[in-house]
Design a protein around this nucleic acid. Structure first.
Lengths: 173, 173
DNA sequence: GATATTTGATATGGTCCATAACAATTATCA
DNA sequence: TGATAATTGTTATGGACCATATCAAATATC
């Protein structure tokens, strides 16, 4: 069995795992030198992203929503009446991979596919009432538990600066 | 056939893909609203990370090094004589998954496993001469093509601030 | 009306991540 | 000392995510 979406274990905390065994027996001085690694933006970026997702999953454990699912619900709420192709591609999800994702959300009655009358090929996406309610609760959890923790760690203005720089990288790099 | 590590196509540029088809026929106004999504740190963080890795792979195309492989070479160079468990866990790689990675690097004669004389269970890791040479070239490519581009985009001081905040998240979140 | 395109879907394969289990070796301690 | 436990590298395996090819139905194009 594997840990499902809501992973709790995460099996390897980078720095801590390296220590912890030999140290007790051989003394303190066995920690590896990260060296230039800690200056590599890609490396640190990846590490930070994993931590943030991990925390997001913990905060959302009660609602069982992954970051990707949360983003779909947000986007459908903001843009009701769009079809699968539009929603998927805006999120960078390939259409084939979006099918199973929607199957999941639809089976949990969070969103619904509706055959379009204009174009009977496409499925219009909308949130169900339950979907809207769950999303509302999810937003609150994210705001009070997740983003709040980041503000606490970085400070409000730093957090905004960080967001700005990341957006710049995401859009202009 | 799939595109190997050095992906060039990347199949879905989030925002651009959504437009591009209907637009030409139906006019401009069909872009989806990202809404609160663009304020979600996790979302933007993930997007930025993908862009950075993508650029890294392009810069390293001539050396065929992935970010993960680069990090292994860097760490082994900085900490010669450590065994697989130590190197892997410092990088957050699980030992079983590290085996194939080392098989690859070793088959390309970039690093070598040496049976330890102290503990004949463990394999000491070192860079080969070729490994050192390749790593040196890799560092130059990263500095001149990859990190330079980031400096250009963000500015030196912003880039450092970004790195600091990401480190904080990676270590203290 | 013949041909091409788009949409949602299926099948499939690759990569990465995580767990269980094993043989060889070493550590522990009764 | 010798039985038991723990560690190292490894294999096997399965899940999650990503990417491509292909399909039938519907629509667009010419």
């Amino acid at each position: 069995m594997t840990v499902s979406k809501t992973a709790e274990k995460s099996a390897e905390k980078p720095a801590e795992a390296a220590r912890g065994r030999k140290d007790a027996a051989e003394g303190p001085g066995e920690a590896l030198q990260l060296g230039e690694l800690s200056e590599q933006l890609g490396y640190v970026l990846k590490r930070a992203q994993l931590k943030v997702f991990e925390n997001f999953l913990r905060c959302m454990a009660s609602l069982q929503l992954t970051p990707a699912q949360f983003s779909v619900l947000l986007l459908v709420e903001k843009n009701p009446g769009r079809n699968q192709t539009e929603i998927a591609s805006t999120l960078g999800i390939l259409r084939p991979n979006f099918v199973a994702m929607l199957d999941n959300l639809e089976s949990r009655d969070l969103c619904a596919r509706i055959r379009s009358t204009n174009d009977r090929r496409s499925h219009i996406l909308v949130l169900t009432d339950k979907g809207k309610a769950v999303l509302a609760r999810a937003k609150k959890l994210v705001a009070t538990k997740h983003e709040a923790r980041l503000n606490e760690l970085l400070g409000q203005s730093n957090r905004e600066a960080l967001l700005g720089m990341l957006s710049k990288i995401a859009n202009e790099f």
